[in-house]
Design a protein around this nucleic acid. Sequence first.
RNA 1: GGCCCCGUAGCUCAGGGGAUAGAGCAACCGCCUCCUAAGCGGUAGGUCAUAGGUUCGAAUCCUAUCGGGGCCGCCA
Length: 584
Amino acid sequence: MHDMNLFSEIRGLVLDQLGKMVEAGELPEGLDFSNVKVEPPRDPMHGDMATNAAMVLARPAAMKPRDIAARLAERLVADARIAAADVAGPGFLNLRLGVEAWHEVIAAVLTEGKGFGRSNIGGGTRVNVEFVSANPTGPLHVGHTRGAVFGDALSSLLEFAGWDVTREYYINDGGAQVDVLARSVYLRYLEAHGEAVEFPEGTYPGDYLKPLGEELKARVGDAYVGQPEAVWLDEVREFATARMMDLIREDLAALGVRMDVFFSERSLYGTGRIEGALELLREKGLIYEGVLEPPKGKVPEDWEPRVQTLFRSTEFGDDVDRPLKKSDGSWTYFAPDVAYHYDKILRGFEELIDVFGADHGGYVKRMKAAVAALSDGKVPLDIKLIQLVRLFKGGEPFKMSKRAGNFVTLRDVVDRVGPDVTRFVMLTRKNDAPLDFDFDKVLEQSKDNPVFYVQYAHARVSSVMRKARGFGWDVSDQTLAAEDFAPIAHEAEIDVVRKLAEWPRTVEIAARNHEPHRIAFYLYELAAEFHALWNRGNDLADLRFLREGDEAASRPKIALARAVAVVISAGLAILGVKPLEEMR
RNA sequence: GGCCCCGUAGCUCAGGGGAUAGAGCAACCGCCUCCUAAGCGGUAGGUCAUAGGUUCGAAUCCUAUCGGGGCCGCCA
């Protein structure tokens, strides 16, 4: 199967011809072609594609860029796909493709269906995407929602581009916060027994723990009433974290996110795995007992120098060495994290991705240092920081009128606007830019709302397909793919096809950079091209997709519309959004 | 004080070594006897925070400065 990415295909052609120029003595031997690019030009007036080959090679070849470009142009136009090759500016070579090349794109989309744009740049590399990983102490909130959507879409994107992806959730069930959870549930349990309770600082007063108090009462009766922590803490903690994870799983399911692995921090304890990871670091000479400098700036009131077990993360670019054991000998939270990432390496993952909230930015360097140390630099770790979501309603800042807790949950969002809208909107910003989420605007049916705009394009195609089928025409992808596309020649139509041809390239760039938002932006652009063409049909009957009573004239146009729908649904599938057949 | 992210049109943001920097909103002017006008076309709007540097070429890379946000012993 040949490469359906038209850009890499043409780049291949350029490289072939450059090679032939070397053979012919028109270029010196030993040139590095790796920086040669074939891209869409910034200004479409310049052509369909542009290559920088001549400019990149001019210096190493000791030739003038325009001379190289001119010779390359001669060779390229000999290819059937290239209609024109013009030297421009400082040495750009602008390529114009023949219409046949564009027609092949339509056929390819319809033949490959949602597989169009799928690639194997990942080469089956095993990648672990860890995301959400919220503490199991309550329901997921908006911030987690963005991280969940991002991680899931990134995972789908990587799968689509040929990676072997595992979606993973790290359950922080080993630290002090799950003890706090247990105590909070215990208070609800006492409450269920009719006691008046207060929630002191450092406990979770949220209503969501009430049912757990009741359930605990139903399970153990009054066995824990009036008993010291030692009696009930372990069991209540286990019960409570299990229930919280049920809750979190339900939240994720409501959003349409399914994890492959839930990894328990607690499962690392008492197994020697934390010790094992640290032992490996010790063997590498990266562990020592020492005292850290006090932090610069505002020093904590009670700061005093203490000896701790430290990891030489500074050898891997961190700012200070990081404690693994507290002065009392217990683990810091960093230690199990190190062991956890070591476990990922041992499980054979060749690439790791962590999706964190932006407030964990200070954690990035030490985690990368740990993974570099444990894998001898062989396993890359990319950490994506997810910026805040700012909630609005009708343009006004939105606050949940929730007693205690007072945070907006994933459920609040999904119940109001649905999972599809939530997901799409969450991906309309780069991960490291703050996101404004307006409960009213995201439901608005207008072009201000990108979700609607993209869905509307898909619905319009569906409408065309319904009508065509209503006429009794066979408009299956298979038969449409076999059409003669010669009537697809108008610039407005080719604009749409050009955008379709960019899809595989968009997937590759998005996957390589771990940037799923590029998919959302692409879909918006594709929808815009489609809507533009649709409207041209108002003036020019030739450009309409459907001409009642003229199946022959309609079929190639229907094929084009259908190709748009196929790519939109492929893109939406990566984002985890269901395409709509109609908007009503 | 240190580290990280951000600074692009009036507003919200794309673009992250290439040619005259893009889109949406807001403003102004147009387009419905015709596949959903829930849409489309056009006009206007920019010293890409600032100053240096690297490069044939910088919004993009480097350094410094200014502005906004986040994090900053053993909390997770």
